[in-house]
Write a protein that binds this DNA or RNA. Sequence first.
RNA 1: GAGAGCGUAGCUCAGUCGGUAGAGCAACGGACUUUUAAUCCGUAGGUCCAGGGUUCGAGCCCCUGCGCUCUCACCA
Length: 523
Amino acid sequence: MNDNESHEHEHHDELHAARRAKLDRLIELRVDPWGQRFDDRSLIGVIRQRAGEVNYRLESGKEIDLPLEIDDEDFDFRAWKAEQGKGELTGPDVRAAGRIILHRDKGKLHFIDIEDWTGRIQLFIGQGQVGEENWEIVKCLDLGDLIGVDGQLRRTNTGELSIFATKIHFLTKTLEPPPAKHIGMTDPELRQRMRYVDLAYNEGSRDRFLDRTRIVQSIRQTLDEHGFCEIEGPTLHTVAGGAAAKPFNTHHNALGMDLFMRIALELHLKRLMVGGMERVYELGRVYRNEGISPRHNPEFTMLELYQAFGNYESMMDITEAMIANALLAIGSGPVVTWGEATIDFSTPLARVTYHDLFAEHTGVDPTDQGAVQACARSLGLETAGKHPDVVKNELFEEKVEDALTGPVFVIDYPASICPLTKRKADQPEIAERFELFVQGMEIANAYTELNDPDLQQQLFETQLEGIEEEHSMARMDHDFIRALRHGMPPAGGLGVGIDRLVMLLTNSQSIRDVILFPLLRNE
RNA sequence: GAGAGCGUAGCUCAGUCGGUAGAGCAACGGACUUUUAAUCCGUAGGUCCAGGGUUCGAGCCCCUGCGCUCUCACCA
């Protein structure tokens, strides 16, 4: 269907026709259906906080505070007023604006619930109270329209806090009908494709994304407090390094140069440490040309930070601080629910070695190469032509990672699978690396950074047997090696999957619930 | 990539054995000045995902395709 046909179709649809008719009627009434600047409105959340200013004024002139139980479900406000004697409610004049979410038409009296991004409030709109000119506008209102209102904040006979309207300001006509009230739009594809509808009408959607913003702001604040500076590195790379993933390819025409969208932030941040930026981070998008799943989106948000003169233990401390502050930022305690699970982020988080977890979950001593190979083969894993540590790690992923409900820092990885990590001084076969696992998901990955240029070059040149080049993290970057030769301080470095962290903190089971516009097939 | 499920009104969903296409909400008309997913009376609204097949007859059965969801695989 082309645009003209679909446009035509909308006009023939009676739902749309009814809205168009009201649009025309507004124009007839000389009301701008698309609204104008609307100054001095208060946020509904702020207006609701003024509920305490609503009083009951007796005929004697005496003003009585409303009872504290007034918002209780079963409180009988009519009876309470009768007990006090004759009087009337008074409250402050307020101005609000929002989208019409519910509309109860009682003839010469309409109850309209409007919502802005801080909350929802009921409007009491009586024909006699607003006057004929406004009443003509009220007759043109549809669910989804944006309106402003002036009125007095009071309560109805049932105790509901309401704005008793004196004037309606039409702000924007909605030509599309909203999804079913209280059910909303449930089809996950439509929610992502039409995120504006999801945000506008689905309960909790906007709050979840606002929580994401609060978490990200909190992380920046935590890092600023620890003396880090935020930078913006290149997203177009000539070498897609710093991680093991297939990149997106692109091309610069004027330079005649093939480029990759970045798959990690690591190597440029380390170059900055060579340049004396001692505590540096980037929080930004990376791109991986791989599968899509509830835990994977082709573009996602990564935080990487590097701290000169630190190590991977410093990174554990800062990870704990970031999570604790992020929880505070969204008004949550350290214990959160995630689906069926409960996650306790109380610090310090558990720290267990790769070695111990391997032994615990496989029943095999990870230093016994023969036993590891036998165990792998018994699970049907291919072992021929693979480096022993590759086999060991495949076994680890198979048997251990999914079982890690966490939160747990898995520490001290086999060095051979960590080409960017410093080895333990007294145990060269162990790399000073941790990964933070929660609910079987890798949330963070950190190293004591390798800063020996000769060893780094050697590790880039050595492809581990059993790992194909495109799956290897060891991807030669000559300029990076040159940078290391100029001296990078010993340092700790940390990467955090922001989307997955937000999933855990907002009780979201899919990464698509925390990414505003996840990648979708063409419509 | 494999398997399972789903696709019906603007939205959320029923649809029995293969026999006239259904409900709630939304919309439209009417009643109601303190409602709370308001209520009540009435009206209208359909390319049953697409194409093919079986059949006297297909929303339903069969085949193909498209799309979505879930699980698995992939993604250290």
